[in-house]
Each structure stands twice: as C-alpha cells, then as structure tokens.
Amino acid sequence: MKKQLSYMDSVHRDGRIWSLSLMVMMLLYPVAIALVFQAAPDGRGLLMGLLATAPMYWAVGIVETFTYIPMLGAGGSYLSFVTGNISNLKLPCAIGAMEQMGVKANSEEGEIVSTIAIAVSSIVTTVIIILGVILIVPLTPVLNAPVLAPAFAQILPALFGGLGVVFVSRNWKIAIAPVALMMILFIFVPALNEGTVGIMVPVGVILTLIEARVMYKKNLL
C-alpha cells in the first residue's frame, strides 16, 4: 500500500523536484542561446568572469542558506531561493504575515503562512515585472523620473523602520546590543554599505544568537 506523505514531507519532495528542475532549466538557458545563435562562450572570459564573481557569491549563498531557512520555513525557502530578493522582499513579507496571523515561525501554521505570503509575493512580483517589460517604453520615463528616484532609493530604510519597531519593541532586551553594534560598525567601517549589508546579516544573526543564549542561560530573558 502506498504510504501517505505528511504535508511537510510532500513540501520537501515537491521543493526538491522544483528546485532541481528549475536549476537545470536555468543552466540550459545560456546553452540554448549559444546553440540557436551558434555562438560559443568566450572560454577565458567565462573562467575569469566566474573567478571574479562566483567565490564571493557562493560563500554568501552558503551562509544565506543556513541563515534564512529557519526564518523562511521549508516551502518559503524552496520558493525564495529560486525567485530571489530574499532580504529586501520575501523575508520581510513572510515575517509581516506571521506577525499579522499571530503564528510562530517554527510551527506548521507558521510554515503555511510563510509559504502563502512568499508565494503571493513571488506571483505579484513576477506579474509586475512582466507588465513592466511589456510597458517598458512608456513606463521608463515615468519610473525613472527624478522626483520619484529618492522614494525607490530608500526602500530598505522604509521597510525596516516598520518591521524593526515591531520586533525591537517586543524583544528589546535581545535587540539593544546587536542593533547598537551594527549601527557603530556601519557608521565607522567605510567598507560596510549597501553592497555588503547582505554579508552582515549572518554576522548579526550569529551574534544575536550567542547573546540570546548567554542571557537565556543566565535567566535574563
């Protein structure tokens, strides 16, 4: 008799199939273009381009995977690591949704809420990009208008102001030290900027986990 899979097991099975299938499709994309236009990649350019780009992003990718999975849940992770824009869209969306629904990230309800929020966010993003591509000619002067540029340049501060106040106020004992430390680091270390904030996320997470563990063991929480 066929064994009935639990919801979570089926999420992992489907997630693996989808991730690996999409990975193969993504790899076939440049291969197909090369075949259609009979244009081989520049071997030296490819190697040197990869050496200049891949090591840092592979390292970041490995650390991000272990950092984000516990926060995104299984379904959310399978979707987010394919559709991207995790820290600036998918994760805040999932956190906001779990907050709104009053569910814990490590419960099945949290898993479902996170998956729904990230799936909806992915669908809306994909549809908006498609509309943007179709309407690129009339939209370009509107969206690139100088008056709107500051608004789109400040998405991250606008995003983490609202989200931060909820989590920092609720967990202020844990939050004070990492928030203060990160502020000091970003103010005084010139290398820390928009390009390196992704690298600092795992650093912030690890430091906060250590701090929370120490406070918990000393009955301070």
């Binding site: 950092t67 926060m71 991250l156 995003l159 989590f167 990160m182 502020m183 970003f186 928009e194 996320v201």
Partner: peptide, 26 residues
C-alpha cells in the same frame, strides 16, 4: 529557547539592516 532562537534570528537580520541605514551619517 526555540522561540527565543527564532526571535534572535529575526532581530539579528533586522539589526544588520538598521545598521546599514546609518552607513552614511558620518
């Protein structure tokens, strides 16, 4: 501890972005 662990992960992520907001104040 499991609940604190998840909260600490969220706070750690948010702390990095709050820090980033201050990167040009100097």
């Amino acid at each position: 501890w499991s609940e604190l662990f998840t909260a600490a992960m969220f706070i750690g992520m948010i702390s990095a972005f709050v820090g980033f907001v201050f990167c040009n104040v100097s």
